[in-house]
Simulated scan of single mutants.
Amino acid sequence: MAHKPSLVLYQPEIPPNTGNVARLTAGAGVDLHLVEPLGFSLEDKYLKRAGLDYWPRVRLTVWPDWLTMEKHVQDEGGRFVFSTSHSGVNYCDFPFEKNDFVVLGPETRGLPPELYADRPTVRIPVTDAVRSLNMSTAAGILLYEALRVSSSLPYP
C-alpha cells in the first residue's frame, strides 16, 4: 500500500503536460502511474524537456491497461479518486487518504464516465469562462491538497 497519495494519468495525450506532472511527482516524492495507450513515446523530446533533469527521480510505473492497474491497486488496498469537471465533491471538501490514487484523464476527452461511475470523484471549481483547467495544473492542485489532507507533505 502507498504511504502517500499517488497520481495516475489515464491515457495522457500531450507530452509536455506529462513531463510537467513527472516533475511535480518527483518534487513531491510520490509515485506517478501512466496507463496506456499513451499519446506519445516516453522518449519524446518535449516530454523530456518538460521534466528537465528530474526524470531519474520520477518513480514511474507504466501500465499496459486500466484493468491491470486496477487489480494491482485493489490488491494493495488502495483507493481511486477520480478527477472530473462534470461532477464530484469540491476537492477542498474531499477526505483524501494516504493510499489514494488520484486519477486524471486524457486532455482532449477526460475520463470515460464508466470508469468513475459510483466511485469517489472530485472537481476543481472554475468559472464559466473555461471548460476545465490544464491537466498538469489540475494535477498540482489535487496532489498537494491530497498530501495536505492526508498529512503526507514532502517537507516539514
Rank of each mutant, 00 (worst) to 15 (best):
H86M: 04
L133W: 07
R59P: 00
V73T: 15
I124Y: 11
L142F: 05
L52E: 00
A129S: 12
K71V: 07
H3D: 15
N99S: 13
V73Y: 02
Y10I: 05
V102H: 08
D31C: 03
Y54Q: 05
W55C: 00
R57G: 01
C92D: 10
V130E: 03
R57W: 11
L7Q: 10
L60P: 01
D128F: 08
I14S: 02
T84H: 06
P125Y: 11
H72I: 01
I141N: 01
A146Q: 01
R23K: 08
S132K: 11
V21M: 01
G110Q: 10
Y54E: 05
V81K: 02
E70W: 02
D44M: 04
R23Y: 00
A2I: 04
Q11G: 03
A28L: 14
H86Q: 14
Y46Q: 12
N99R: 14
D65L: 08
K45D: 10
G110W: 09
E13T: 07
G51C: 06
V73W: 07
S151C: 04
S87N: 13
G77Q: 07
P16Q: 03
Y46I: 02
N20M: 08
P15K: 04
P112G: 02
M69F: 13
Y10V: 03
L7H: 09
V73A: 11
V126M: 15
D93T: 00
K71L: 00
P125N: 11
L7S: 03
R79V: 13
F94V: 02
P95L: 10
M1T: 13
D44V: 08
D65E: 15
L142M: 09
P106C: 08
P15I: 00
I124G: 13
I124P: 09
R79A: 14
D44W: 05
E43G: 10
Q74Y: 06
L9R: 03
W66E: 02
Y91A: 01
V89W: 02
P154F: 09
C92N: 14
P125L: 13
G29L: 03
T84N: 04
R57F: 14
R59F: 05
V122W: 10
L9Q: 04
P5T: 10
L52H: 00
L104N: 10
I14Q: 08
P16F: 04
S150N: 12
D53R: 08
T137R: 04
R57E: 12
V149E: 06
P154M: 03
